[in-house]
Design a protein around this nucleic acid. Structure first.
Lengths: 240, 240
DNA sequence: CGTCCGCATTGATCAGGATCAATTACACAT
DNA sequence: ATGTGTAATTGATCCTGATCAATGCGGACG
């Protein structure tokens, strides 16, 4: 978890710092002026995590916040008996640690190889207090996340299995597009189990629903993703 | 919706303003100093809504934000075919309009008689920009809401009907307690249908589950609420 | 090259909650 | 008292998605 070798490599690779950061424009740092980026640079610790590695666990005091720069992260909550709900997938540009107040409200682990900027929470909190426009940006991000969470409540509470999967695929398409990777072929780095735990279904239902969509020529299943063949039809199905 | 008679009565009743506001200590205004409250007073429009009256609808541009001072509000999203998901119940002290950026992301209507402080969005936004500690407070509120939303995702995605209802009752108990109305008897101003649409169930399942809890001596169903008879057992069932 | 192992798919059956259908309870009006 | 309308409860049956079980597939490794 504490990223020794990879982190150092990463650090060397990134020693040019925030100014050269490839995902700055889509992350919360985008609101900072060049001279403020220097402040941020001073706080930033580049870190990396291998596939399946834990980033933090629910309940643990939040000592750092993270800005994802590469890879995919699953964020999830567990019940004592092992039932799992994934509350989100974090992609490059996403920020982890909004609920900075106390402990992490969910666990996070890397799905594939993940790079991130880690900031000590206290220093980050101080910077936020000193820079109201950074706070504003953070708040806008938080309200955006809240809106997505409410959309997910609608999905989990009222949509059927097929609608859930279609919504998920269209949402992933949107997210990749915002990262400049727009394509009819959607990368899905997460497992079927992850998708199931995100959509409130079982792995079997997810698999069957994928097959059904493929059979109906809505999608084509490819390695590590799907190609959307009938976006209109799917958007129609997702309605809203 | 535009609250003529009731609003005027309310306005007269409240002309003492924010300083005398009974729910200030639990609302986002609590962070303001006395002289800042005067600024807020200048913006505030006391409004009231009768039971079942619409406060705002999803997609409508958000011209105002609201601070609930009395009553209960349901916040919900609709699918084109009429399926409804209630994303939250707002109680006194709750703030509506976090996603101020554009249009409302959900609809809101009064369950019982509701009083609120309405603030024009533009003026409110300007005040927030001028008062970083108000923004900080708002941000803390937003992240708290986000945490609750993630908890609700876990409920909707992975809990069974009985767990859902028990969690709901215990959460309502907590919320009333924070408003100084702690009691083993929980007020439930919302209908069974509202509870069903919040928990991702049908009205029949909610009713049956209430009956089952009553049969097992966990609760006693009383008019407009329930009395919790076995809080320990219920907390155990809710686990987490 | 074959074995192993994790993941995904597919099939058969089951069950929790949805749906359909009465019935009851209660507030309110006449 | 009687009727009316809305909300809640209860019962019977159905169906979507869960569970149980088997098979398929592809990559890592001896």
């Amino acid at each position: 978890m504490d990223c020794t070798i990879l982190a150092c490599a990463q650090q060397r690779a990134q020693k040019v710092g925030c100014q050269a950061c490839g995902i700055r424009s889509v992350s919360i740092c985008a609101c900072l002026a060049l001279e403020e980026l220097a402040l941020l640079d001073a706080l930033a610790h580049p870190v990396s995590f291998g596939a399946k590695e834990t980033i933090f666990v629910q309940g643990q005091p939040a000592e750092a916040v993270y800005n994802i720069t590469a890879g995919t992260v699953r964020l999830y909550k567990l019940l004592p008996d092992g039932r799992r709900q994934i509350v989100g997938f974090a992609l490059p540009g996403d920020f982890l640690g909004l609920a900075m107040r106390d402990a992490f409200g969910f666990s996070a682990d890397a799905i594939d190889t993940v790079s991130a900027c880690a900031f000590p929470r206290s220093a980050y909190s101080a910077l936020v207090d000193a820079k109201p426009h950074l706070l504003r940006r953070l708040h806008d991000y938080a309200t955006h996340e809240l809106t997505l969470a409410q959309e997910q409540m609608l999905l989990l509470g009222r949509r059927n299995a097929e609608e859930r999967l279609v919504c998920f695929l269209l949402t992933m398409r949107e997210r990749w597009a915002k990262l400049g990777r727009a394509s009819a072929t959607i990368a899905l780095p997460m497992s079927r189990q992850d998708i199931a735990d995100f959509l409130g279904l079982t792995i079997e239902t997810v698999s069957r629903t994928f097959s059904k969509l493929a059979r109906n020529r809505k999608i084509l299943i490819v390695p590590d993703g799907v190609r959307l063949l009938d976006i209109e039809g799917m958007a129609n199905l997702a309605a809203a």
